[in-house]
Design a protein around this nucleic acid. Structure first.
Length: 500
RNA sequence: GGUUUCAUGGCCGAGUGGCUAGGCAGAGCUCUGCAAAAGCUCCUACAGCGGUUCGAAUCCGCUUGAAACCUCCA
């Protein structure tokens, strides 16, 4: 494992802390996944991409990371407090589908987008409905410890009781009294002893689609409970990193803290990481705000705010150019600039790989201390960026500085003969591994191969016309070797897949 | 109303008590059949007003503006 002073900003302490895993080299990381009742929008994508970088960099440093990201497929309610309808149940009724059809549809869509963005799949992707038994057990445990109470078939967490012994609000920085003062009146909270209490288990009305048997009657789990249960199950009572969007800090994550302490007496999470929001025209993108841009809309350019399509990797590069804890504003100008930057980086990747592949043909200089130091400093800057709370913007700046060297060698504006082998190797290896493995950027390739093929067919036609049969045969042979046969037809020249 | 965060050059966007961020755009040069790419050079900012300091864009205060959370949202 490389020696690094990785620092990350812990929401819990509001400070950058040195990352020290509980049981190195193992790292447990839990990220709150999507509620699969509609398509993920760009804001959701940003969060998951940010944590993909965390996962990738920790892995790059040699840690063995178990990355758990859940799918919320029940319990997340529409509207205020704990009286709304289940989001998935509502959508199911609306579209006359089984709730699990809704869940499957949007889970598939979510996975597809994650692949487009080249996000690594988590090690475990548990679902809330798959852990009802565990949620019942944890609810019972919390009741046993005196922090939960049953009311009318529902179970609530007793925040006031909890606050007598522990600090409720420590994660989000809220003071309970102020919280109460700022709250507005909500309907249907008579079951609760206090307004700040939250549901662990909800009694299901007869019309409710998603329901399970419980010691307190038919019902369904509260939203906050699943994350506590599943993180505990797969990462243990205490684990390293818990991540999510800033909007989940309160109440979701605050409730998670309370649930873990309420059930097991210990706080589960060592480092809380929160990503900032994505904004459109300065306003936060949110499903409830109604200003969502869907990934597919961005990729096709089919959206009123977009002047052109932007590819998945353009989006990824754009995201990585800002720090995850800052807000990120979507604009056409910024996306266009990102597109060019991304392509520059990819051209560099191509050049670096070419140089690497051809290295046997080069003659290198003997050791050059000055150059060696210079290259090492450039590389160190890239690592310093990532070590400083996953500052991908800083790392990218460093990579562009490496790229200058690579391009200089590639175009032979500086001869390789002045370079020593070691500097050459580390330069290329660092650039390639950072771009591909740490940042997760990949070449998107040519999107319109048919057009490229037409250029070739044009050359073929021309050669034929000029009776340059040597050239004609050459084109035929080389295209055939790629699985394409050129067809001379009465109507013109075309091509077909070689059926051999 | 409460809590918190932020304000950087034409645009996006890092960062830091004294040392070039980087990308995009623009100007010039090198290279080049033309062009592109690439490299080099230039453009070099830190909301306003005070204070601390040898020195602040960076720390403190005030003013102005913006956003987020306090209610479901990544």
């Amino acid at each position: 494992m490389k020696k690094h002073q990785l620092k990350l900003y812990n929401t819990l302490t509001r400070a950058k802390e040195l990352f020290e895993p509980l049981k190195p080299p193992y790292v447990g990381m839990y990220v709150c996944g999507p509620t699969v009742y509609s398509d993920v929008h760009l804001g959701n994508c940003r969060t998951f991409t940010s944590f993909d970088i965390v996962y990738r960099y920790l892995t790059h440093l040699g840690y063995k990371v178990r990355y758990v990201r859940n799918i919320t497929d029940v319990g997340h309610l529409v509207g205020d407090a704990d009286e709304g309808e289940d989001k998935i149940g509502k959508k199911a009724k609306l579209e006359n589908l089984e709730p699990m059809e809704i869940v499957q549809r949007y889970t598939n869509g979510f996975h597809f987008v994650m692949q487009q963005l080249n996000n690594t799949p988590p090690s475990i992707e548990p679902t809330a409905t798959g852990h009802i038994v565990e949620q019942l057990e944890m609810t019972q445990q919390i009741i046993n410890n005196g922090y939960g109470y049953v009311a009318n078939g529902s179970v609530y967490f007793d925040v006031k009781k909890y606050a007598e012994k522990y600090e409720y609000g420590k994660l989000s920085g809220r003071v309970l009294d102020e919280l109460l003062a700022g709250q507005r009146e909500l309907d249907g909270q008579e079951e609760k002893r206090n307004k700040e209490d939250f549901a662990l288990w909800k009694n299901a009305l007869p019309t409710h689609l998603m329901r399970w048997k419980s010691p307190w009657g038919d019902g369904f789990p509260g939203w906050h409970l699943e994350c506590s249960v599943m993180s505990m199950k797969y990462l243990g009572e205490r684990f390293d990193i818990h991540g999510g969007g800033m909007d989940l800090k309160f109440p979701h994550h605050e409730c998670e803290v309370a649930q873990s302490v309420g059930a097991y007496g210990t706080e589960a999470v060592k480092y809380w990481l929160h990503t900032n929001m994505l904004t459109v025209n300065g306003q936060r993108m949110g499903k409830s705000v109604g200003n969502s841009i869907l990934p597919a809309e961005l990729f096709t350019g089919n959206h009123a705010l977009l002047e052109q399509p932007y590819s998945p990797m353009t989006l990824r590069f754009f995201m990585l150019q800002t720090h995850y804890r800052g807000t990120m504003d979507i604009t056409n100008d910024a996306l266009k600039a990102a597109q060019k930057g991304y392509l520059k980086m990819m051209n560099g990747l191509k050049n670096a790989k070419e140089l690497q592949a051809n290295q046997a043909t080069f003659t290198f200089a003997t050791s050059d201390d000055k150059l060696k130091t210079e290259v090492q400093e450039l590389i160190a800057a890239v690592y310093e960026g990532m070590d400083d709370d996953f500052n991908t913007a800083m790392a990218i700046a460093g990579l562009f500085n490496l790229l200058k060297k690579i391009n200089t060698l590639h175009t032979q504006q500086q001869t390789i003969a002045t370079w020593d082998k070691e500097s050459f190797d580390t330069l290329l290896a660092t650039y390639i591994s950072f771009v591909e493995d740490v940042l997760g950027l990949r070449e998107e390739g040519l999107t319109d191969l048919a057009a490229v093929l037409n250029v070739l067919l044009g050359l073929y036609q021309e050669a034929k016309h000029n009776k340059n049969y040597e050239q004609v045969d050459k084109l035929r042979t080389s295209m055939k070797s790629l699985g394409i046969v050129v067809k001379d037809m009465k109507t013109g020249i075309g091509w077909a897949y070689d059926e051999v």
